[in-house]
Design a protein around this nucleic acid. Sequence first.
DNA 1: CTATTTGTACAGTTTTTACAGAACAAACTA
DNA 2: TAGTTTGTTCTGTAAAAACTGTACAAATAG
Lengths: 192, 192
Amino acid sequence: MINELTGISAAHEQSIQKARKRIIESIGKNMDLYGITLSTGLLYGLMFFQNKPMTLDEMGEAMEMSKTSMSTGIRTLVDLNMVNKVWEKGSRKDQYEVERDWHQTFADFFVIKWRKAVELNLLALRKSLSELNELSAKHPEEEVLQDYLRSDIEKINQAIAYYLWLDRLIDTMESGDIYQLVPKEHVPDKHM
Amino acid sequence: MINELTGISAAHEQSIQKARKRIIESIGKNMDLYGITLSTGLLYGLMFFQNKPMTLDEMGEAMEMSKTSMSTGIRTLVDLNMVNKVWEKGSRKDQYEVERDWHQTFADFFVIKWRKAVELNLLALRKSLSELNELSAKHPEEEVLQDYLRSDIEKINQAIAYYLWLDRLIDTMESGDIYQLVPKEHVPDKHM
DNA sequence: CTATTTGTACAGTTTTTACAGAACAAACTA
DNA sequence: TAGTTTGTTCTGTAAAAACTGTACAAATAG
């Protein structure tokens, strides 16, 4: 039996489950922003309200899905640092629990996914930039070619500048400097 | 004919296309972070290197895809403010060009997509919170129930605090205050 | 060492999504 | 107004992704 809400009336349990379900479904849906599928999002929501770590078997039973699917879903969540594997003594089964610091989860998403994209795009941009610069140096007299090259090189340089900015933004998330600009606790404006 | 690289040798044209292709494919792939499909990402990359607005027919020819697909792809990009519809006089066809300010594109993505998610999640959280508070007030004597409620309410309050923070972060992107923390132009550290 | 148990890789199936072609409605043209 | 042109909706199909059950390898227990 999965249900951990024991010792209260069925009506009360239902009320709590209804309240949880609303949240789980909303969060689960919107986790597509993290590139996470709905069912994995729902799994995350389920674990969010759990007060102890869960095993794959428990998840499968609660989600009415195969353990295989739980395994792949959990891997996605672990890769994003949204869920942590915990070591429970006396159990052979792997146990998982959600990361409670959502600010950290948000930051990690950028550090993991967006940083990777920035690096790959910068790599491509710089390689192409170097090729085009080389081509330009080889044929300084060909005006039409130079026009094309100038245009592309300008675009590439702007793109590089943007990715460097994005890289610095991600730095502030990794270092925590972002909280200087936007504190975790809201500081109200001073009014005269 | 789509190719706008005329007046240069085939070899030079090929060099430029190769350099572009590397960038287009890298950017196209990584646009999945925006929830954008690969082919739409490639369409965006194509338009990025175009120096004039494109029509749906031109896109279809260049991408070797149907105009229908171009239409849906473009709508996705327009909805995200990544591409703008421009009004070219003397032409009946709709024309589109990429938004060149990528900082703005990035900010718009948060303002459009993440803000929506924040709002929906806050709505669900607050509604459930209110239900649970009500339930708690109705049965102050039931200790087991109160334990469950305390736990859920605590989690919900933490989630709300997080989303309020995220909302303020999005505010800084919308207002431009984010550039105070991370300037568009890199300001190197001062060293002694 | 042998028996289980556990998690994952793999292969097949189902479901979802992307895409194309036809049909249509709106807008422009003559 | 009638005749085109253009973009999108709708429907069917192809491709991709999610999901399941089996098989297997690694780890633990006896």
